[in-house]
Amino acid sequence: MAISAQARQRLAQRVIDQLRTQIETGKLRAGDQLPTEPRLEAAFGVSRTVVREAIADLRAAGLVRPVQGKGVFVSDTPTRPALILTPVEIKTIPETLELLEFRMATEGEAAAIAAYRRTAEQEAAIAAANRKMAALMEQGLSTVDADFEFHMAVAVATNNRFYVDILRHIGPRTIPRGQFPTLPEANDHAYLEKVHAEHVEILAAIVDQDPERARQAMRAHLMASQRRYRLLAELQPQ
């Protein structure tokens, strides 16, 4: 039986927490290779999708690195300083986490409403924003504006002006990575592919006119972002 997007996110968090603990305690040391995906699936009792989401987040946080054709390895200590944010970025983390929490409540419901209220034109606008983000990813260009366009298109599709007004008021801060230029993940193709895949799930639910699936997909998308920034905050020097 397929698990919900939110349940998958919770399982991914469990995998992240345990692998991170192994790295921090030295059970997995710099340069060590992580177990293969099938072994991680068996060890944690989760699906391959969950394992891949967890590895993607650990990679975005700089804790592991993939080596083509060989596997995933614990990052060497010299690469860790790249994760140290500027003072301005560090101060932004609490606000980012609060904003993501707020967005889960508002945008989750907006996605559900859009699933049964959107017009054909509005559905096309959401799909167009999604395609635009994919094209920018392939060109190696910033996807922040296209990401915002996607979320705004979902808000417009509610046909409720208050959802639109909220996103317009928040503005560029809606997309967290736009506030953290130091983060390597802002232009990391694997990370952006994961974000795009989450958008695809939201779009598919809206196209299928499935409000509950749309709600869960949007909440899972924002929960994944919240998880990444919590991990980022924990990695900063005290």
Rank of each mutant, 00 (worst) to 15 (best):
M1E: 12
M1N: 11
I3H: 11
I3R: 06
S4G: 07
A5L: 04
A5N: 00
A7F: 01
R10K: 04
A12L: 02
A12G: 01
Q13F: 05
V15W: 02
Q18H: 10
T21S: 12
Q22H: 09
Q22S: 13
I23P: 10
E24Q: 10
E24W: 01
T25L: 08
G26I: 04
K27V: 10
L28D: 07
G31Y: 05
D32T: 06
P35D: 15
E37R: 15
A42G: 06
A43K: 14
A43E: 14
V51A: 04
E53F: 05
I55W: 04
I55L: 15
D57T: 13
D57C: 11
A61I: 00
A61R: 06
V67C: 02
G69L: 02
V72W: 11
V74P: 01
D76I: 03
P78I: 00
T79E: 07
T79G: 00
P81S: 03
I84S: 03
P87M: 09
E89C: 02
T92V: 03
E95I: 05
T96S: 00
E98D: 10
E98K: 09
L99H: 08
E101D: 07
E101A: 12
F102Q: 12
A105Q: 02
E107L: 09
G108L: 03
E109A: 09
A115K: 08
Y116D: 11
E121F: 09
E121W: 10
A125R: 13
A127W: 06
N130R: 15
L136V: 03
M137R: 14
T143Y: 10
V144K: 15
A146L: 05
A146I: 01
D147W: 07
F148T: 00
F148D: 02
M152E: 11
A153L: 04
A153W: 04
A155L: 11
A155N: 12
A157V: 09
F162N: 13
I166K: 15
I166S: 13
L167S: 13
R168P: 13
R177C: 03
R177I: 08
R177N: 04
T182A: 11
T182G: 08
P184R: 07
D188N: 14
H189T: 14
L192T: 06
K194H: 13
K194A: 13
V195K: 09
E198G: 15
H199V: 06
H199R: 12
I202P: 01
L203F: 15
A205I: 01
D210P: 05
D210T: 05
Q216W: 04
A217S: 13
A217T: 04
M218C: 11
R219F: 01
A224I: 05
A224H: 12
R230L: 13
L231V: 04
L232I: 10
L232Y: 08
A233D: 01
A233K: 10
